[in-house]
């Protein structure tokens, strides 16, 4: 017996909002980045599930997912490079302490 279609959608929606929640509440930059990745994974699940269950005769969703994974890696690479630079300057990764631009 296969898993029903809606289960996947509930999972991806939950994952999406966990990502948003984590992004807005976490103070550590790396954790914020991880939350953003959670959002992208929710999107990936959506695409694959829609493709497999609703449009099994084409591959648009799968391709989209592959591209999202690739670009997420590129994004994380640049973000982590900036975080390392930030850590050298501030010696911290806590967003509350990185507040030079707060007035």
């Amino acid at each position: 017996m296969s898993i029903p279609f809606t289960h996947f959608l509930v999972l991806s929606t939950l994952l999406f909002f966990i990502g948003i929640y984590g992004f807005l509440t976490r103070k550590n930059l790396i954790t914020m980045l991880m939350s953003a990745e959670l959002i992208l994974n929710a999107v990936n699940i959506n695409f694959v599930v829609f493709n497999k269950y609703l449009y099994p005769d084409q591959l648009h969703g799968h391709f989209f997912t592959l591209f999202i994974i690739g670009i997420a890696a590129a994004e994380a690479a640049v973000a982590i490079a900036i975080i390392i630079n930030l850590y050298r300057n501030f010696s911290t990764m806590d967003v509350e302490e990185i507040d030079q631009l707060k007035h």
Binding site: I39, V43, N46, V78, I82, L86, I98, Q100, L101
Partner: peptide, 30 residues
């Protein structure tokens, strides 16, 4: 320091926003 701070703020908000855009696109695809 300010430049690094603005960079991290930009990339975090940009990745959040592109995630949200993609979630919308996935629904339209569905």
């Amino acid at each position: 320091m300010k430049s690094a701070e603005s960079g991290i703020k930009l990339i975090l908000s940009a990745s959040l926003s592109s995630g949200i855009t993609l979630f919308g696109i996935s629904m339209i695809y569905g």
